[in-house]
Amino acid sequence: MAMPDDPDVTPADVDARPGVDRPVDPLVWPAEEGLHHLHPAAPRIWRMVTVSWAVVSGAAAIIAGLVIAGVAGAVIGAGVGAVVVALAWWYPARRYRYWRYRIGDDALELRRGVWFRSSSAVPFHRIQQIDVEQGPLQRRHEVVTLRLRTAAAASEGQIPHLAAAEADLLRDRLLAIARSETDDGH
């Protein structure tokens, strides 16, 4: 079976050859062209959730330390709790920085992840359903989550914390593209 991208060389050759004109790394998107950020309120919403959990965890660590090793344990627990709270404060901003989406030629592409980077694509003509969801914190900041469903249970098409108006526009646009793709026979 000949390889469609380069029939004359083995894959190992392609990987090993320096300076070869190879496809772009899927996790490295060129420039910032066509890339969209989430709503600026996203890190605040994430932070409210993560810091709340971190404070509860820190309190549990202090109590556990106090029960197990007295005051010294409580101090250690407080230290651990402080680190967790600091991480919970810092992480949402980084998460926001790495969260991007773009509407490609044939698919909606999402890129995210601070430590664990991820890039996913949902072809337009595979979209079965688009849900717009809004939780209490999101309602306060007038943002929504756009969830794209395909026939695959594991598809990862979810854009959190979009401005409500932008989400409506994006949903209509995606539905229009999906409809035209389907009409074209996909």
Partner: peptide, 27 residues
């Protein structure tokens, strides 16, 4: 194919490795 995703952990990043997940209809 319904959708796909490429992921990379910090350990993979050191070596330029990826996981590619290909999702088809169903589970």
């Amino acid at each position: 194919v319904q959708s796909w995703s490429v992921t990379q952990s910090p350990f993979q990043r050191r070596h330029g490795l990826h996981h590619v997940s290909i999702h088809v209809s169903g589970v």
